[in-house]
Simulated scan of single mutants.
Amino acid sequence: MSSDQSSPQVPGATVYVIDDDAALRAGLADLLESVSLNARVFASLQDFLAEPRGDGPACLILDVRMPGQSGTDFHQQMERLGVHLPVIFITGHGDIAMGVKAIKDGAVDFLTKPFRDQELLDAVQVALERDRQRLARAVSTSSLQDRWRSLTPGERDVVRLVVRGQLNKQIAAELDVKEITVKVRRAKSMKKMGAASLTDLVRMVDELAPPER
């Protein structure tokens, strides 16, 4: 690493570092904390997995070559392990093909040692922004699911048919209810879901997880 710090970061955000080089871990911790980031460093993948993680925005700086399991193999298993953090790879042994594959697999960046401090800080900024967006989507989805659960079974039935493009008369016939009942349920559903239009309602239903439909 060489010194060159200027990019704004996310105060209070956490950057996890996994590298078996103690000196590099210490250097990265100092660099990250110098720009008001919470650095948590680990010598192994096992140590990292054993440590509880917070709920705020975070990212992971991961060495490609680790004792036991490689960083790239771990990256491919993260989803299954419940680790949803953006990853920045660092390596002293990388090549172009390895870097291209890592980016295709979703990594934010692939930095070859020695890298400039600013390169890493810029990558961290991108990764933290990506994680902020992920967290915001999770909150939005949770709120949407709560609103869907607030509908009565009858209202959900109407919504399912409305978003398929059926008319009130057709929905009434299919559900064996009066057309006025469909209109009332439809209006209540729109209000509960916070949908200003049919387009909004369709988008919301599309965003719901399959079990909620």
Results as ranks from 00 to 15, higher is better:
residue 6 S to C: 07
residue 13 A to M: 03
residue 17 V to D: 02
residue 18 I to F: 06
residue 19 D to P: 11
residue 19 D to G: 13
residue 21 D to E: 14
residue 28 L to G: 01
residue 30 D to T: 08
residue 32 L to F: 01
residue 37 L to E: 02
residue 40 R to F: 00
residue 46 Q to N: 10
residue 47 D to M: 01
residue 47 D to Q: 07
residue 47 D to A: 15
residue 57 P to N: 05
residue 57 P to A: 11
residue 62 L to R: 01
residue 67 P to H: 04
residue 70 S to G: 14
residue 77 Q to W: 07
residue 79 E to H: 11
residue 80 R to E: 14
residue 82 G to C: 06
residue 84 H to W: 10
residue 85 L to S: 01
residue 89 F to I: 01
residue 90 I to N: 03
residue 95 D to S: 03
residue 99 G to R: 03
residue 99 G to E: 05
residue 102 A to Y: 01
residue 102 A to T: 08
residue 104 K to E: 15
residue 106 G to M: 10
residue 111 L to D: 13
residue 112 T to Y: 14
residue 113 K to G: 09
residue 114 P to Y: 07
residue 117 D to L: 10
residue 118 Q to P: 09
residue 120 L to W: 08
residue 125 Q to R: 12
residue 130 R to V: 08
residue 139 V to D: 15
residue 144 L to C: 04
residue 149 R to P: 05
residue 151 L to C: 12
residue 161 L to E: 06
residue 162 V to I: 09
residue 164 R to F: 04
residue 165 G to K: 03
residue 166 Q to S: 11
residue 167 L to A: 14
residue 170 Q to E: 12
residue 171 I to Y: 02
residue 172 A to F: 00
residue 173 A to G: 08
residue 176 D to S: 05
residue 179 E to R: 12
residue 180 I to K: 13
residue 181 T to N: 07
residue 181 T to S: 09
residue 183 K to N: 13
residue 189 S to G: 01
residue 189 S to P: 00
residue 194 G to M: 03
residue 199 T to P: 12
residue 203 R to T: 12
residue 204 M to P: 08
residue 209 A to L: 14
residue 213 R to K: 08
